[in-house]
Write a protein that binds this DNA or RNA. Structure first.
Lengths: 246, 246
DNA sequence: TCCTTACTGCGTATTCGCTACGCTAAATAG
DNA sequence: CTATTTAGCGTAGCGAATACGCAGTAAGGA
């Protein structure tokens, strides 16, 4: 029985209950929760070991008895911040299932706007992340795809969904700083784009695409769904192809 | 004539050539180039103002005459690190064009493995980023899509491509640290996944999907192309639908 | 020519972050 | 009761970003 990586063991709460020594007054979960609360209230950049310890009424160095480094804490946060997915209804087709799934991810991450600023440490390994992974795979159960293809489809979907969320949250942050940033973007580009050198972009600007002010939240939701449905269209074609061949 | 944002002005080299005072011994391009060289050779984390200044034979604080903050420097790096796209051949259809485009982005970013660790500061605004944007829009020129739809398609594509690159570069980094990390991943999961709670994932593990060791580079390239083609399948359907309706 | 003025380079110092190290005290095993 | 393990934490080292102000330099104007 080889050792599991330390962060995985922590996320799954697999620790031989240490016998000797004083009772811990802190748990890893406390630390993770406190860090998440700070990030929620302020920013990921506001999460320092000192701030977390202060919020728990402990000294900075006490945290290092429970967490090897700040990076490890970030890994723990990346699993703990996601709540479990609610189970998909049994009677929906794969496409509805994956759409619901994607919207669920969106809802879950929107509660923690710092989430997509976390560094990627590796493939999903914590209980919550794996539960989401499982949920998406489950939606493909009746498609008849081979397991490896399911993994490919779900990986691509995760990439798209996380990328889109990252982008829209970051743009939303810039938007909050400066409410007319979006229409201003069109103005800046038209000052700088030379139609000789960037003709296609110039046509887009002429068409006024970046001038609509509108409701930013709503528009970014539309973009999210638009790209998602394109990807799912592709998946549908892929499933047809595989199943006719099989 | 309203002011452009400072970073945009710097990226486009729009600065009234200062008249009085000593000749600058540094330029913004020097600074940006030095920072990129450090990041290439070591890591994005190795880029500190002190290191950049040292490499240029200047003092740390001298940099601040040319760059407002380190964040601004990162923005400059994010444009300067991308070389211009080579023009797409004139006679290819949109799909071939976008595939070439995506591969070009992949090649360009692979030269700077720190690229996807940069924080997103906003929509593309520098000359190189906009050239890539223009290039992708140009590939859709003959499709008859309205300009706004082209933008949506390209935005989704950028999201997917950048997300996939980010993921694959980060996994590759973990892989370099520990060459059997991938097969180890399967072992870790099977230790931790309960088939009762995560049945779909357990089936994937049983099928041995995470046990192939193989050539990691090649496999990640396949995944990249697989997801890309799924997305482009979706775009093809979208174009058909729009053009039939129009 | 000489002064004014704007601008560059840079030394100093502050503030903040992560974390190695080692001490003290607590709790348990034998 | 003693030895051992472990928790909390104070101190200190190191490195990073950057505010501030001084000194020297080159152009414009008299």
């Amino acid at each position: 029985m080889s050792e599991l990586p330390a962060d995985v063991a922590l996320m799954w709460r697999l620790r031989d209950p240490g016998r000797r020594g004083p009772k811990p007054s802190l748990t890893v979960e406390d630390i993770t929760r406190a860090a998440i609360e700070i990030a929620d209230a302020e920013d990921l950049a506001a999460v320092s070991m000192a701030r977390v310890a202060e919020r728990l009424g402990n000294s900075t160095m006490a945290l290092y008895r429970h967490v090897k480094s700040k990076d490890e804490l970030l890994v723990l946060m990346s699993d703990a911040a996601l709540e479990r997915p609610s189970p998909l209804p049994d009677d929906v087709d794969w496409r509805t299932g994956l759409t619901l799934w994607a919207e669920g991810v969106l809802v879950a991450i929107r509660k923690h706007r710092w989430y997509s600023k976390l560094p990627i440490s590796g493939p999903p390994a914590g209980p919550n992340n794996l539960a989401w992974f499982d949920s998406a795979l489950g939606a493909l159960e009746d498609t008849g795809l081979p397991e490896e293809a399911k993994v490919g489809v779900v990986m691509g979907l995760m990439t798209y969904v996380h990328g889109e969320i990252r982008l829209s949250l970051d743009l939303a942050a810039g938007f909050a700083d400066n409410p007319n940033a979006f229409s201003r973007y069109g103005a800046v580009l038209s000052r700088v784009v030379d139609p000789r050198q960037l003709p296609a972009l110039a046509r887009v600007l002429d068409a006024g695409v970046f001038e609509s002010v509108g409701n930013f939240e709503a528009e970014s939701g539309e973009d999210f769904d638009f790209g998602l449905q394109l990807y799912l269209d592709g998946v549908a074609g892929f499933i047809d192809r595989v199943c006719q061949a099989g």
